[in-house]
Write a protein that binds this DNA or RNA. Sequence first.
DNA 1: CACATTTAAATCGTGCACGATATACTTGCG
DNA 2: CGCAAGTATATCGTGCACGATTTAAATGTG
Lengths: 144, 144
Amino acid sequence: MSDALLLDSQLCFALYAASRAVTSAYAPHLKELGLTYPQYLVLLVLWESEGVRVTQLGERLHLDSATLTPLLKRMEAQGVVERRRSQQDERVVELFLTPHGKRLKKKVEEIPTNVFKNSGLSLKQARELRTSLQALTQRLRTDD
Amino acid sequence: MSDALLLDSQLCFALYAASRAVTSAYAPHLKELGLTYPQYLVLLVLWESEGVRVTQLGERLHLDSATLTPLLKRMEAQGVVERRRSQQDERVVELFLTPHGKRLKKKVEEIPTNVFKNSGLSLKQARELRTSLQALTQRLRTDD
DNA sequence: CACATTTAAATCGTGCACGATATACTTGCG
DNA sequence: CGCAAGTATATCGTGCACGATTTAAATGTG
């Protein structure tokens, strides 16, 4: 009967494997800069919008404080970001880049370019794939 | 100037987010059966080819013994799988399903169907997406 | 047969993920 | 004002991932 449960027929596994493959492709380049992959994602957000709160960062990355708090503390210890309690609301922690964190942007820029080159995808394919994945994520997050 | 580093333009983030979204979609259903998502993947392999070695399992899932050994021990403790040292080669551990592990197959079958329904994808879209992801994984794994 | 080499799992250390709970601060309402 | 309810972050416990090392068994070579 059905091969519905064959590993290789599972979209979920293809996704899981691809995600880990991409992360591993980034890892060695990021390691040279002292970063992990989730830390890189945090920097992407901060380079766009410095001063965000932990909660806002979590909304962008779909991660919660249990993941972000220790991760941000490690980044602070390495001198990449700064965590500041807001004056107006002491519950809030706002996130800023250190000068080192700002400089990293230039060094990081070529990494996604390189990984993309190795991916063998055309720009069009990559855009389509990204769009499909974003739609999928959206669907699965809204109607559980 | 370049928006090359905008979070939402990154395929890598779309992939990472989608993968976690899919895993979370599976999680509550699997939890009822006492399984985690990686454990479900292990079962997919064992339902196809009982008796595989740890290394072979790792090749299928792209995971190594540091991940699999403790995971398999937990599954053994829960009575889902059995780990047996090969007689011919004492270095090898072969993996078998317990009766409980076999029975789980029926209960699990509907989970991917349900998640797929919520994904809003057509069968054709899902197949195309899976194929793209498999190709991407392949490319990134071969030429690191 | 000895012994270096290779191979299969297991172990170690670090860093995510995430459900659940705790703590501390703020706000709204009587 | 006083206190309940709400909010922001932090903490706790468990389970992956993965680079690196270790242990033990098998194999090949002189």
